[in-house]
Design a protein around this nucleic acid. Sequence first.
RNA 1: GGGACUAUGGUGAAGAGGUUAUCACAGCGCUCUGUGGCAGCGCGGUCACGGGUUCGAUUCCCGUUAGUCCCCCCA
Length: 431
Amino acid sequence: MAIAKKSKTFQAPKGMHDILPEDQKYWRYVAKKAESLLEDYGFEKIETPVLESTDLFRRGVGEETDIVSKEIYTLKTKGGDELTLRPEGTAPTVRAYLEHGMQVRPQPVKLFYNASMFRHDQPQKGRYRQFHQIGAETLGDASEIVDAELLFLAHKIIESMGIKGHTLTINTIGDQNCRPAYLKSLRDYYKSRAKKICAQCRVRTKENILRVLDCKEEICREVRKEAPQIMDYLDGECKNHFKHVLEFLDEAQIPYLIDPYLVRGLDYYTRTVFEFLPDDQTTNRSSLLSGGRYDRLVDLLGGQRTPAAGWAMGLERVIEVLKDQQTNVPEAGLKPKVFLVQLGEVAKRRSLLLFEDIRRAGIEVKSSLGRDSIKAQLRIAHRLGVRFALIFGQQEAIDKTVIIREMDTGVQETVPVEKIVDELKKRLKKS
RNA sequence: GGGACUAUGGUGAAGAGGUUAUCACAGCGCUCUGUGGCAGCGCGGUCACGGGUUCGAUUCCCGUUAGUCCCCCCA
């Protein structure tokens, strides 16, 4: 084997990213805001495996959807199982609901997750192959208050993070009773105009007719103007359901936009569908949070007919907006207040325990035990902006004392080592 | 799957067909093993990879790879 001059270096797989220490504050902030609100509203956290049976997604998300047909990471185990890295969180949550017999819990069951998702598509702004979602699901209740609560919470979460300029777009796509008639007339309409729409939409007419509605091609938008509208096809129940959801939004004073052309890419949606989009479409054009009702998914996955609804929020996208808007986000770690400087072998060894004493007293302390020179250590202490440096050298180790130095003034005092924690507490309490 | 743009120390930039490849910041080391903010000096790049044009390419051309962005689709 040839010996390379310099060994190959590695980089993260395409579309996947390290989340570095300096970015952790955003992740912590978003998770904290969202999770605490969800918990306040009675949602309970669930964690599911990264891998699931491929069939779960084939059936749950839909065989013909882009997500399943071309974006899943699939692998075969040594035992011959076909598994897939989850591309979304709803199907796994429903699987867990069924597997653990949550139907016997008081309904609805309200769950949330915060997890990595995987989709093998072309990475670009706000779209990654591994990305993170916080999602909420309410299972076992058909009433519109469920949709309303989910929408309310979504709105609340986005607001609580301080995101400015976002719009809720909402629509209904009917259910298994009234949608077929609508789809039929939509298909008829587009078939008769096949020459006036783009090639892709001709395919959609056959395979996924709803999707022609959100085609961005100018010609298709033109044709769309005269197309049949779902509102005219809704049956009484679906119409009422949608009406009540909107009434709730009005009452809660959550602004929204009805977009009759909003459809979702996943097969399992029924009735309510919605999306929160940032208003500033120049820097961010993809939805921050989206979801809807999926009354047929649970039985599609082998359970009893169980109504449900949910949403998922894209964390990378949310964080992108927070950064764009220069939102003030609290620092992740607490600033150290004390720096422990050690000199000499004996002191260095005893420093470990001294450090622990201070830490256990709840004082933020840092050290650099690998460094020997007092100068270098004090320089770091200064950089960190600590209030006090503790100098623990050979002489101090022998005398069982520590020098406490106030960084701002340079004033030092020698105190017995067993008094140091109390002394620090006393001094830190002042101001 | 289709398209556009980019590629120079860790980061951000500059550069010209021939230089020792420049600067700032960060890192590490030294001046300096008992006292921080300052300073000085040093270390670190096969200029993404492969090929072509040329006396000579890091610079121009082609290809590859990677990254970014757009379409598609989606969180």
